[in-house]
């Protein structure tokens, strides 16, 4: 088991380097000239050249990449073109908001999606199941920014029961988290339903029924326990979507998360900040997937046995 975890952890390193290479190449083969952006349009060519020299921007791409990579492992992501402050500090300060949003949203979607999915599978083709199917389909077609705006219109501008933006108290998180969680809850619901229905057709469920186990015991003890594993994976995949979603949701509700850092940096062509924030989110996503894989191996005795 430890060997498995260690192997997976070591495997992260090359992937991390590749991710950084991809993001680095995308953002560095650009027509824009960072030194020109930092100094403004009226600066003399000599000054621009000097700054390029100083920042090492005239070196070949691969050399810059290796330099950047070395920096990343020391948590040095360079200096922001705009604020001239270390990028790492800038991002670290905004990171908790995004994490909180994504974690709350994943938990909420699981808490809504899994029980309703089980219910849907047990009472399949009932009126309730159908209405869940329809709502899931509609929710999958709503842009998240518009869902947020509609919730904001109803709950804060009309009813006035929830704050419409900013952070401060826990209630500030309710609307953004709901906006993110509702569509993924619909997705989790569909996943749970399909997997539960599949599981209920298995032989061991028939065996349990034949033994005279109660329906509740069959559903929770025999079926759900097995169905939860694939659901767990889809929860993890969902997390990626949610991390991406925070970019837009933070803009809607004016939350100071990593998404707003990226947007601000994009408007100002602040490449080091965009790069660092993208790498941060990609790494976070990778770690979550790793955690799920490890949990998978820990929960599922079939996988656990392979690594004994």
């Amino acid at each position: 088991m430890y060997k498995y975890v260690l192997k997976r952890l070591l495997y992260i390193l090359p992937i991390l380097m590749l991710i950084i290479l991809i993001v680095f190449s995308i953002l560095n083969v650009t027509p824009g000239n960072p030194a020109r952006i930092m100094l403004g349009a009226d600066a003399s060519q000599e000054l621009v050249d000097n700054l390029n020299e100083e920042l090492g921007l005239n070196k070949p791409l691969i050399q810059r990449y290796l330099g950047y990579l070395a920096g990343v492992f020391r948590l040095d992501f360079g200096i922001s073109y705009r604020s001239q402050a270390p990028v790492f500090n800038e991002i670290l300060g905004n990171f908790p908001t995004t994490i909180r949003l994504a974690v709350f949203a994943v938990l909420t979607s699981a808490l809504i999606g899994i029980p309703l999915g089980v219910l849907s599978a047990v009472r399949r083709y009932s009126l309730m199941d159908m209405s869940f199917t329809v709502s899931a389909l509609v929710l999958a077609s709503i842009p998240n920014f518009w869902l947020g705006i509609m919730l904001m219109l109803i709950f804060s501008l009309r009813l006035g029961i929830l704050p419409s933006g900013g952070i401060g108290s826990l209630s500030h998180y309710i609307l953004p988290v709901l906006t993110m969680a509702l569509p993924s809850a619909a997705y989790i619901l569909r996943m749970t339903r399909t997997i539960m229905m599949e599981t209920m057709r298995q032989d061991y469920i028939r065996t349990a029924k034949a033994k005279g186990a109660s329906p509740a015991r069959i559903i929770f003890r025999h079926a759900l326990k097995n169905a939860l594993l694939p659901v767990l994976t889809s929860l993890g995949m969902n997390f990626a979507q949610l991390l991406g979603g925070t970019l837009i949701i933070e803009a809607v509700f004016g939350l100071p998360g990593i998404g707003s850092v990226i947007l601000k940096a994009m408007q100002m062509k602040d490449v080091p900040v965009i790069m660092a924030a993208t790498i941060f989110l990609a790494v976070l996503f990778m770690l979550i997937m790793l955690l799920i894989d490890i949990m998978y191996a820990y929960i599922d005795p079939r996988i656990k046995a392979q690594f004994k």
């Binding site: 991710i19 995308i26 953002l27 824009g32 991406g244 490449v271 993208t278």
Partner: peptide
């Protein structure tokens, strides 16, 4: 394997990085 690595970057981030590069 290369596709796997690209797909470990959430889609919207990849799009945004490309837009940041292209304008």
């Amino acid at each position: 394997r290369f596709i796997d690595v690209i797909m470990s970057i959430p889609g919207i981030l990849l799009t945004l990085a490309l837009i940041a590069a292209l304008g």
